[in-house]
């Protein structure tokens, strides 16, 4: 900037219109490129929805609205229903959130209020690195490390204790395979944990210090400040962060594929095998030829997954909008 020679600006005055015209084209081209790229993003989303719907159309035509509710999945007789994978997707995702949210809250609380200053950076980074571990690694770790532990110790113990209780017991019965819906939910919980924890930490940090200090000044304990000042202030964003985790859990593929057990029936027990939309698509795709009704059913499942996760992610963005603006 300093190189601009002063006399030149005076002499350049008459020439200005020409440079303006030249730069006008440059500006127009660049603005067009930016706008076109932005439009491409919209086109991309629209194309994904349309292509998945077109791909799933034969299945929707063949089975009608019953496709969504039917629990039958019979490749031999060419009867396909989305009931089991939808059930598995929603059950594992909700269960994962039930397990992950309290722990994520604990981590966020620890990182914002409890941990000594020097610890916050490294621990926060470690939690964020957990979010960066690829899905397939979680799958292998889950299959080779968690599944044996589940089958050997945790599941037998639960089956022998909670499994004996009336009503609740039926959820925790059956043979301890190690794989199944519960293990899938556990792996999902570990995977979404860092996302929820990081979002919660970020929103907790946005509470104005004056509010917290006033509460501390009145003699509140840290837990009381969290429960009565920080949480009410950040309520909406916290729910948004949880929804973001839900959106991730719904579409997670590889990790679930390793541990879900791949069975197309609904079992009352959480320890039973099952399928999610993503896992059935990944597992059965190889056996469905181009143009087959099965492939169409898988694409229709993809379309349903897109609709579900789009709704959840949209809700999450809407809830987090105040945070994103700030």
């Amino acid at each position: 900037m300093a190189q601009v020679a002063v006399p030149e600006t005076l002499e350049a005055a008459p020439a200005r219109p020409t440079t303006r015209r030249g730069s006008g084209t440059g500006d127009a081209v660049f603005a067009f490129l930016c706008r076109a790229s932005a439009a491409l993003v919209l086109v991309l989303l629209g194309a994904i929805i349309v292509e998945l719907f077109i791909g799933g159309l034969p299945a929707f035509r063949a089975f009608g609205a019953a496709f969504v509710s039917s629990t039958e999945w019979d490749p031999v007789q060419e009867i396909y229903g989305a009931g089991v994978p939808i059930y598995g997707t929603i059950l594992t995702a909700i269960l994962a959130l039930l397990l992950a949210v309290p722990v994520a809250f604990g981590i966020a609380f620890f990182l914002t209020e409890l941990a000594p200053e020097w610890m916050r950076g490294p621990v926060g980074t470690a939690i964020e690195l957990l979010a960066a571990v690829p899905s397939i690694i979680f799958g292998m770790w889950g299959f080779f490390v968690i599944v044996p532990v589940m089958a050997g110790t945790i599941q037998p113990a639960i089956i022998d204790t909670i499994g004996e209780l009336p009503l609740v017991g039926s959820l925790f019965q059956g043979p301890p395979f190690g794989t199944g819906l519960f293990t899938a939910a556990l792996i999902l919980a570990i995977m979404v944990l860092p996302f929820i924890a990081a979002t919660m930490r970020d929103v907790f940090l946005q509470v104005p210090g004056v509010y917290k200090e006033s509460a501390y000044g009145l003699g509140s304990t840290r837990w009381e400040v969290m429960r009565k000042v920080v949480l009410p202030y950040t309520r909406v964003s916290v729910v948004g962060g949880i929804m973001l985790g839900l959106g991730r859990a719904l579409g997670e593929t590889m990790a679930v594929t390793f541990v879900i057990g791949n069975a197309n029936r609904i079992t009352p027990s959480l320890f039973g095998p099952g399928n999610t939309i993503a896992s059935i698509v990944a597992l059965e795709f190889g056996e469905s030829g181009a143009g087959s009704l099965k492939l169409s059913a898988l694409l229709a499942l993809g379309f349903l997954l897109f609709v579900i996760s789009f709704a959840v992610l949209a809700l999450s963005r809407w809830l987090l909008r105040s945070r994103l603006k700030g």
Partner: peptide
Amino acid sequence: DVLLSAPSILIGLFVYQI
């Protein structure tokens, strides 16, 4: 932002289709 968190398996299915 939605695409940022959208299930990657659906991106795969989409590209398979097109």
